[in-house]
């Protein structure tokens, strides 16, 4: 077994960081493989290579320097790296997961962008995300949440006409006896609506949704 000596290891970790900043999923994938080949611990690659990059991207976004395309491509690069590293983590993988999430757009609504954005950011930030797509039947949400023993069910609605489906979803999750908390979002949705339908939380935008998810799922 050969380990990468200090200098080379440092360069590799810096390159991982940069691949996230650049939103370069091909580079992130390649660097994750190189790390494994060089016998760098997957946890070290994640914690000291890729995650600092993601954190930096988040900071740049908050500061108004980065915008959504940079946020999303960074998240995609993070996912590319995780796809390589997660299988190797074994037992550690489930310990490291912040929570399991089922996400989708409610029945009758085909709006994709907000939901995908939230899903991508949750996944990049350490949640295990199952994106069910758009126009997802209520039963499908419930069924998947049960299968995965999900911590969170996240439902998006962009239309005032489809918003009501979020209420049906909350009721369905509750009556199925699932432990999952239900978070809602979308353009017409607000805190008052979330409270009215008995949802467990609402976030104004994708970045806030990540914070909300962290707060909602106990460690």
């Amino acid at each position: 077994m050969t380990e990468v000596p200090g200098e080379g290891r440092h360069e590799l970790l810096a390159a991982m960081n940069q691949s996230i900043l650049d939103g370069d999923d091909e580079a992130a994938d390649r660097l994750a493989r190189e790390a494994l080949a060089a016998r760098i611990e997957p946890l070290e690659a994640i914690d000291r290579g890729f995650t600092p990059g993601l954190r930096e991207v988040g900071r740049l976004f908050e500061d108004g320097e980065y915008f959504l395309p940079e946020l999303v491509t960074a998240a995609q690069a993070m996912q590319a790296a995780m796809a390589v590293l997660r299988p190797v983590l074994g037992e550690q993988a489930s310990e490291r997961t912040l929570g399991r999430v089922v996400i989708g757009t409610v029945p009758g609504d085909i709006h994709d962008i907000g939901k995908t954005l939230v899903g991508t950011l949750l996944a990049a930030n350490g949640f295990e995300v199952s994106d069910e797509g758009v126009d997802v039947p209520i039963e499908r949400f419930v069924e998947r949440a049960r299968e995965l023993d999900a911590d969170l069910v996240c439902a998006s609605a962009l239309l005032t006409t489809t918003m009501a489906m979020q209420r049906d979803l909350v009721n369905a999750v509750r009556s199925a006896g699932l432990r999952a908390r239900v978070l809602v979002g979308g353009a017409p949705v607000n805190q008052a609506w979330a409270e009215e339908i008995g949802a467990d939380g609402y976030a104004e935008n994708a970045a806030a949704a990540v914070d909300l998810a962290r707060r909602t799922v106990p460690p």
Binding site: G23, G64, F67, L68, P69, T73, T116, L117, A187, N205
Partner: peptide, 26 residues
């Protein structure tokens, strides 16, 4: 939104106004 073509071009194509202009949700 996550396409490299978007990341390469959006800054030149789309002007991002400063905080005095209201572009956020209600």
């Amino acid at each position: 939104l996550g396409h490299p073509h978007t990341r390469r071009n959006f800054r030149a194509e789309l002007h991002m106004p400063g905080p005095a202009i209201s572009r956020g949700s209600y």
